[in-house]
């Protein structure tokens, strides 16, 4: 049943997404692709939409997937599921487990979990760019236009900090990338 699948799928996302929205993207991709709810392309569109609309990206993704799979009720189920673990954990921490955060075994688990998550995020970013730049139809055929757009965007993102002392905002980068897409791709 789709509602149950949405519930379980997004509970998984809610339970395992440590460290903010971009940390959750690999996990969301994983869950969404394994159930066959959206294509990889639509997922990246939704990340862009999530960046340019209010609210947390994780919640946005859940609402979108739920709605696209099972209408309004699906959206409610998926959104509730993604929010629930965070809600319950904070309540538990405040009510009964005030000392759990300082527990050394809990900290030991976290110290392994954190670098693992960073590795997963890194891999997801690399993979998303590789699949855009290398044409999937022909082996090792590099899409030069996509490569140029990638270089410009990377320069803007990582160079802006050095030049204007402030990093370009995600929304500006998305707007610029859309213009580059229309002009170059």
């Amino acid at each position: 049943m789709i509602y149950l699948e949405l519930l379980i799928g997004f509970l998984k996302v809610g339970c395992f997404s440590f460290g903010g929205a971009y940390a959750a993207i690999p996990l969301i991709r994983d869950v969404v692709l394994s159930y066959g709810w959206l294509s990889d392309e639509t997922i990246s569109y939704m990340i862009a939409v999530g960046e340019s609309t209010p609210g947390s990206i994780m919640v946005n993704m859940a609402t979108y997937v739920g709605s696209s799979q099972a209408g309004f009720l699906g959206a409610v189920v998926a959104t509730t599921a993604v929010v629930l673990p965070a809600f319950i954990i904070i309540l538990l921490l405040m009510v009964v487990l005030k000392t759990a955060m300082n527990n050394k075994y809990f900290q030991a688990v976290l110290s392994g979990l954190k670098p693992c998550i960073i590795g997963i995020i890194l891999a997801t970013g690399i993979y998303m760019i590789i699949t855009r730049v290398i044409n999937p139809d022909l082996r090792f055929n590099i899409d030069v236009k996509a490569l140029i757009v990638t270089a410009i965007l990377a320069l803007l993102m990582f160079g802006s900090e050095k030049i204007i002392k402030k990093q370009i905002s995600p929304i500006s980068l998305i707007v610029i990338s859309a213009v580059l897409g229309v002009v170059l791709l």
């Binding site: 862009a48 997801t124 998303m128 757009v149 993102m157 980068l173 859309a178 897409g181 170059l184």
Partner: peptide
């Protein structure tokens, strides 16, 4: 274009 930007953001 946006797909590439999302990769960079990640």
């Amino acid at each position: 274009g946006i797909r590439i930007a999302v990769g960079i953001l990640i």
